[in-house]
Design a binder for these strands. Structure first.
Lengths: 352, 352
DNA sequence: GATTAGCACTCGATTGAGTTGAGTGCTAAC
DNA sequence: GTTAGCACTCAACTCAATCGAGTGCTAATC
């Protein structure tokens, strides 16, 4: 969690260059990188010996470390953090419009999101994560009870953004059309236009009182409706490309890969990621977040990095998109692809 | 695909005993099993040399083979087939009621199925697979169009078994309540009680004619409704415990594990399994099927076995449950657990 | 004072020879 | 038909030797 922003002051320009060179190289190869490599890689003409000294300093400062004595260096979480922060503060990278990264419009939001996850995973070779938007701030737009069978009603609820919820309600005894009509009227006059979170227990009790006489059945129906409204717990999280994790030996070998993939099957764990991302975004930070290793709540994920972003579908519905990969993920590409996808989502849904 | 039922005649009693011993042992250990082991394992008092001769015969007949000269034997697909067929024909095994294998009733079918998959995977240590039931033979029970906004209608469709479908329909110009009422009447009188597959193109054109005057808008609305009805393509397949595949070294080492897990993300591939299972069940075969290795269509699965069963939810809605594991899966346990789960599903849904 | 060349040293990874042991096939005796 | 016995096979393991990328340190150079 401790995202201490490294003060640039700590590092002179040369160290920065070397650090970045180390990281870039490691991102590409996945192998510890040695002084000789850097000596050639960078434009600053320095011998490996000099680089060695500088690297030694960088290690002391905690930006890089050696997996074992006498091997090259690899970045620490702090190193990655520095790199990522630097990246983000750079001029907004131009979004490369990839021709194969195009969401086809689909009828259902669900389909669009699944598709987005698939595209993201296929394009980055990491694992993609997309949550359905939360709707509890959205306003109720339409509510209707209909008799489907003698002893069951169907409640249909439409929320701003055209999210539709259904619930079959079993009634102890048959309700006549007239009562249903009145009930519909009652519910609509009182609830329409309210946001889902405003429809709370107090309001429900009030409604029941208004309903008057028939209390028993009616009150149970009202309860059922309330429950259906509240059931925005149906937050879904789609993943795609889980097995992409296998592409990265550093995760594969240590057996972490299995843990990670298991985490993708675990909704609670995923919710953690999604919700922290949403929260941070609420807190007014930049639209994309990067969590590196231990910065993440989930223990199985401590060998990963996650790039998240919050999308918003016009009507204030907000959800999270994420990319999970090894720490040495190609952050630029990940963020670029993400950005491009977000733009498309915006495009598709803004006009409503 | 070639499920040649081994004629028992081919094998004398002793060979059968030895074969079964080999298989049982291999199922447990996962290691090739040698003659000495069998010599002790079985009740028939025979020296390892004799066993050796018999095993040599069994190999010639294609029931077992050696991964390399001078190692124990492991079963071939044919061997497993023999074993499984034998198992199935034995007296119906008593279903062990496991206390930790109990589905909690839930409101939505979806939740129940997801739960079933989870339980199945957790109990067997294999990967579970559950498809939502197909509904195209089910009858339309309720259909309603409502105006939600000036230029959009909501179609709500309820099918036998209380499957609910929704679709927002955008209308070019506003429709007045009266027209909607008539349209509802028209649709209901003509479609109610028909099975989804009976509602075909011909019927739709007929409807459009009946609708008369307003053709343009109305016909597009009718089309949209038809589309919503036909959209029973929303066959979902839930998986659980995908990573259980990693428990089995023979799959892990060869790198097949990744392919298999990838297959679990691929809906088309899963549909193959589900649909062949449904088809076979339709063909009146026993309620549970076992596919071993190459008997399966999916190439990535050729190192697995799959146990499938078809569940039926009272109203004729049928779906598939499956267990995917290594060929050396504990078939008895898998089938037992499956059976127990099916009974529960029956229990939960029969009373309607 | 910063940079560099040079050198001894470290340590994981790779190689290959040698050993072990489970298991087989075959033959001859029971 | 069954069994004991023996030679043979072959994957798996062990262990030492070697390799090589990379370091840290020192002394010379700019």
């Amino acid at each position: 969690m401790a995202k201490e922003k490294a003060q640039i002051a700590e590092l002179d320009e040369r160290k920065v260059k070397i650090l970045i060179a180390v990281i870039r190289n490691y991102l590409e190869t996945g192998e510890p990188v040695g002084s000789r490599t850097i000596s050639k890689y960078t434009d600053l003409k320095l011998s490996s010996a000099t680089i060695r000294n500088e690297m030694s300093d960088l290690e002391e400062m905690g930006y890089i470390f050696q997996p074992h004595t006498s091997s090259g260096r690899i970045p620490t979480d702090k190193g990655y953090r520095f790199y990522v922060d630097n990246l983000m503060s750079e001029k907004e990278r131009e979004i490369q419009e990839k021709e194969d990264l195009i969401i086809e419009k689909a009828d259902k939001l669900e389909e669009v999101l699944k598709q987005a996850a698939k595209l993201l995973a296929a394009n980055t070779n990491y694992t993609a994560l997309v949550s359905t938007p939360e709707t509890h701030r959205n306003k109720l737009k339409f509510l209707q009870l209909s008799k489907v069978e003698k002893d069951s009603l169907l409640a249909v609820i439409v929320v701003e953004g055209n999210i539709i919820k259904n619930k079959m309600i079993h009634t102890e005894e048959e309700m006549d059309e007239d009562t249903i009509l009145k009930l519909n009227l009652l519910l609509n006059t009182h609830l329409n236009g309210l946001s889902l979170e405003e429809i709370n227990l107090g309001l429900i009790t009030l409604l029941k009182e208004r309903a008057g006489i028939h209390t028993e059945i009616i009150s149970s129906v009202i309860d059922a409706v309330a429950e259906a409204i509240r059931a925005d717990e149906d937050l879904e999280i789609y993943t795609s490309g889980a097995t992409n994790i296998f592409r990265y030996p550093e995760l594969m070998d240590s057996g972490k890969a299995t843990d990670i993939i298991n985490t993708f099957e675990n909704k609670e764990e995923l919710e953690k990621i999604v919700s922290t991302s949403l929260a941070e975004n609420n807190a007014g930070k930049s639209e994309m977040q990067v969590y590196i290793g231990k910065e993440m709540a989930s223990p199985a994920m401590q060998d990963c990095s996650v790039v998240t972003a919050t999308y918003e579908l016009g009507d204030g519905m907000r959800g999270t998109i994420g990319i999970v990969g090894p720490k040495r993920m190609d952050y630029e590409k990940a963020m670029g692809t993400m950005k491009s996808l977000m733009n498309q989502l915006d495009e598709i849904y803004k006009k409503k």
